[in-house]
């Protein structure tokens, strides 16, 4: 059954969004686990304790894969966004909104470029000398991911595909 062009791009946007949600969740768990590590719980903890009690190292490869997949989907959608979303946003005079989108593309790339070091540091999480860099890099890319997610969400509200 053929689908319309609008539906096709909307499906891609939804996949991009779902991948971003998974990435955001994984990175938030991991960042909280390094910022507020749980010491060995003997009894059941509360929600916050369980939230930060994850084994961060187990998330590293999944986070790298999710970042790359989300990046590829975003880069694909961007080809249509540039014409069908960005131009109307500029015509409407939403310059700061557009500025934030351009900042989003820069931050997404800067995050992508940190992934090899991020993966290496987490795969060697047993080495105490890497703790500082591993924690700082994890918190940095988690903050980047939140920024990317929120800007993408707001932009979709301003003018999503099919609007």
């Amino acid at each position: 059954m053929p689908i319309s062009v609008n539906t096709f791009w909307t499906i891609l946007l939804i996949i991009h969004g779902l991948l971003a949600v998974a990435l955001l969740g994984a990175l938030t768990h991991q960042a909280v686990s390094v910022l507020m590590p749980v010491r060995q719980a003997v009894g059941p903890g509360g929600f916050v304790t369980r939230f930060r009690a994850v084994n961060g190292a187990g998330y590293a490869t999944a986070i790298c894969v999710l970042w790359v997949l989300t990046f590829i989907m975003g880069a694909w959608i961007y080809t249509k966004y540039r014409i069908y979303v960005r131009i109307p946003i500029e015509q409407a005079g939403y310059w700061k909104t557009q500025g934030f989108f351009d900042l989003k593309e820069h931050v997404a790339t800067l995050g992508l470029l940190t992934l090899p070091a991020y993966w290496y540091l987490w795969k060697n999480a047993q080495k105490a000398e890497y703790d500082g860099a591993r924690k700082a890099l994890t918190v940095l890319i988690a903050a980047m991911c939140w920024f990317l997610f929120l800007v993408g969400h707001v932009l979709n509200n301003v003018r999503g595909f099919g609007s």
Binding site: R39, Q40, V42, A53, G56, W119, N124, Q126
Partner: peptide
């Protein structure tokens, strides 16, 4: 109840040869 033994963030050594490689680092 909480003890003082840290459990998270300190994983076992990676079994990946890539992660153990000095050149890859």
């Amino acid at each position: 109840m909480i003890t003082t033994t840290a459990t998270t963030g300190r994983a076992r050594p990676s079994t990946s040869s890539l992660a153990a490689s000095a050149k890859f680092k």
